[in-house]
Design a protein around this nucleic acid. Structure first.
Length: 553
RNA sequence: UGGGAUAUCGCCAAGCGGUAAGGCACCGGGUUUUGAUCUCGGCAUUCAGAGGUUCAAAUCCUCUUAUCCCAGCCA
């Protein structure tokens, strides 16, 4: 990663700068702590870029990848693998080995025992419903559990037997003894251990009790020597608890939790639960469906990792609720692809053009640059013969001046080739155009007509005799409403045209287009071969994003 | 009078008492064998509102308003 990618300042950097200045820390240690219960999405990308980016920018600093895996019911090893791949693909390296909260289960258990010994935790036998009742409400205090003052020795014994598997799920839990009247609900004797006879993807069947997030996260941070523990705004209320746990156990390290606002993107869902529902209901095909805002979906769609990083840099990090426009993300994608995508031509909705004055038995090998501004990208060869395909939208029998394409009786430039003139239209019995007969000006290859005629339009084409058929998947936003998360019925918010498949042709050289390698199909947009479905026999291209189109007509 | 947080251009976002950065979007001009790119120019006398302190306030104080989060044995 280059210096250019260094993110601008933000309030977290200001805090770190100050901590470094005062000597509180000599370097920083951050962590990206996903729960392996789904795939990472664009919102996680923000957190990844923040945490790993900080570690990259401050000397001697590092960022851990830690799976926050304390709920075996929702987690899976497959998600662990997918998350690792996504972080790596985004371009980041974690410090040392991958960490798991479950690595610390023994220590966590010991700290829990310590809490009980110090009369700071107790085993509670209230059931779920009672627990809720005793907790009180937002505006009224809770009341103490009848088990709150049971003897330490009894809690110690019960907790050991919970671990030994003597009690049923839900029959007992370990609670921190804090304050049932706290105005902060999170401080009303929060549950810190529950019984779950569940198989864990990392620890198998070693445990039947699992620690809760609030107890686990702060201790895991402390164990790893995290200096700044960055999380999203909804955890602000948890911070007093985070600090309380670390203050009440014998651990030296006291990381500082800092909250920032999560990313909301227009027309996009950023909730693992809701994204999972889209898959369950077959609204999309998988976590990596190119319409998904997941890192793997965007990768398959053709979004470059650098574009995602740039996007995260541009949106900044603050505590303000925000909803970023899709245009902002797309601008980053286009900017990267404009510079890095080799040019090619593809006709998505073909109609045949016959050049009547071109020799039937000739095929020319024209040359075209791979990039109009970057010679280092080389060139490609374009076969050109009597019959070609152009896009149906690029021809009209009649049109006004604003239409800069092929019009009957008028001329247009074939990109990288000759100027042609439409002479005649052939239609089938139902009136559909089947062929456009044209003439070409042999003196216009690589130069303008010598008589000074102005030909303003340029259209793309593919040779009819030597192309490759291809399928094009045209993606649009998955939802029609700006905030699908707020939709009463998600199905009503769906865009029925989020995927439109077209059959057409690409220039010959694209046969061996590598999956996920981006091309600009001139005048159409950026495309890449689909990593799952494209083969040399059946090419499938995903449209990453269309070209910017400022044409009002 | 539950608690916690946030309010700067359509969307993000700098700014940290000295007289409103930048990006995206948008609107105009130029170049162009991609209606792309590139390029030039425009785009907040004003910082949620009202008071106050100060020579000076988006920045400090007071009050008001709006929005978000918290009552999982989820994270």
């Amino acid at each position: 990663m280059t210096q250019v990618e260094t993110a601008p300042s933000n309030f977290i950097r200001n805090i770190i700068d100050s901590d470094l200045e005062t000597g509180k820390h000599q370097a920083i240690q951050t962590r990206f702590p996903p729960e392996p219960n789904g795939y990472l999405h664009i919102g996680h990308a923000k957190s990844i870029c923040l945490n790993f980016g900080l570690a990259l920018d401050y000397p001697q600093s590092a960022c851990n990848l830690r799976f926050d895996d304390t709920n075996p019911l929702k987690e899976d090893a497959d998600y662990v693998a997918a998350i690792e791949e996504d972080v790596r693909w985004l371009g980041f390296k974690w410090a040392g080995d991958i960490h798991y909260s479950s690595n610390y289960f023994d220590q966590l258990y010991a700290y829990a025992v310590e809490l009980i010994e110090n009369n700071k935790a107790y085993v509670c036998e209230l059931n779920a419903e009672q627990t809720r009742e005793y907790r009180g409400t937002l505006t009224s205090a809770g009341k103490d559990s009848p088990f709150r003052d049971r003897p330490t020795a009894e809690s110690l014994d019960l907790f050991a037997r919970m671990r030994a598997g003597e009690f049923a799920e839900g029959s007992m839990m370990l609670r921190a003894k804090i304050d049932m009247t706290s105005p902060n609900m999170k401080m009303r004797d929060p549950v810190i251990y529950r019984i779950r006879f569940a198989h864990h993807h990392q620890t198998a069947d070693q445990w039947c009790i699992y620690p809760m997030y609030d107890f686990t996260h702060c201790i895991s941070d402390a164990i790893e020597g995290i200096t700044h523990s960055l999380c999203t705004l909804e955890f602000e209320d948890h911070r007093p608890l985070y600090d309380w746990v670390l203050a009440n156990i014998s651990i030296e390290c006291k990381p500082r939790q800092i909250e920032f606002s999560r990313l909301n993107l227009q027309y996009t869902l950023t909730s693992k639960r809701k994204l999972n529902a889209l898959i369950e209901e077959n609204i999309v095909t998988a976590w990596n469906d190119p319409r998904m805002p997941t890192i793997s979906g965007m990768r398959r769609r053709g979004y470059p990792a650098a574009a995602l990083r740039e996007f995260c840099k541009r949106i900044g990090v603050t505590k303000q609720e925000n909803t970023v426009e899709l245009a902002s993300l797309e601008a980053c994608v286009r900017e990267d692809l404009e510079a890095n995508g080799p040019r090619a031509m593809a006709v998505l909705d073909p109609v045949k053009v016959i050049i009547t004055n071109y020799d039937q038995n000739t095929t020319e090998q024209l040359t075209a640059p791979a990039h109009p501004k970057d010679e280092s990208m080389g060139s490609r060869t374009l076969p050109f013969s009597r019959e070609l395909f152009i896009d149906r939208a690029d021809f009209r029998e009649e049109a006004n001046k604003k239409y800069k394409r092929l019009v009957l009786g008028k001329e247009v430039r074939l990109r990288n080739a000759y100027v042609i003139k439409a002479e005649q239209v052939i239609k089938d019995e139902s009136g559909n155009i089947t062929e456009i007969h044209c003439s070409y000006d042999p003196e216009t290859l690589g130069k303008n007509p010598s008589d000074g005629r102005k030909v303003k339009g340029v259209i793309h084409w593919v040779d009819a005799a030597s192309n490759k058929p291809a399928e094009f998947r045209i993606y649009e936003r998955l939802f029609l409403v700006e905030n699908p998360a707020a939709a009463e019925d998600i199905h009503q918010a769906l865009n029925p045209e989020s995927l439109v498949v077209k059959q057409g042709f690409v220039e010959l050289g694209l046969v061996d287009a590598q999956a996920e390698k981006s091309y600009q199909f001139e005048r159409e947009g950026y495309f890449c071969a689909d990593s799952k479905d494209s083969t040399a026999e059946h090419l499938v291209f995903n449209r990453t994003v269309a070209l910017r189109d400022s044409w009002a007509g």
